[in-house]
């Protein structure tokens, strides 16, 4: 919950709510990009961000993203984050 996980922003999904689709370790998740938005949201597409509990909090470069993911996998945190995302989807589905 505190470490965050790197994801790549692949599309803007909702301009007004400042939401974008991010790809996190092969999994797609809608995230809020208000904290990293500067100018037109389209400019974020293709960029990497550290994502904390569904919010892109900081833009990072690809190399940093890769290193961070590696460290998170080492710590078991990457798996945990992906499981939490799946749990969130399950909660929306009713459980």
């Amino acid at each position: 919950m505190c470490l965050g996980i790197p994801g790549q922003i692949v599309a803007i999904t909702d301009e007004t709510r400042q939401m974008a689709m991010a790809e996190v370790s092969g999994v797609r998740r809608e995230v809020n990009v208000a904290c990293v938005a500067e100018g037109a949201l389209e400019g974020l597409v293709g960029q990497w961000a550290l994502i904390h509990v569904g919010f892109a909090m900081s833009l990072i470069d690809e190399d940093e993203a890769e290193k961070t993911l590696e460290a998170l996998r080492d710590l078991g945190e990457a798996q945990e984050a992906l499981e939490q995302m799946a749990a969130g989807d399950a909660a929306l589905a009713g459980e």
Partner: peptide, 16 residues
């Protein structure tokens, strides 16, 4: 009680 990944999941639950 439901585990969510993000407060945004909770918002969506409220909408639904």
């Amino acid at each position: 009680i439901r585990m969510v990944y993000s407060p945004l999941d909770a918002l969506e639950l409220a909408r639904r």
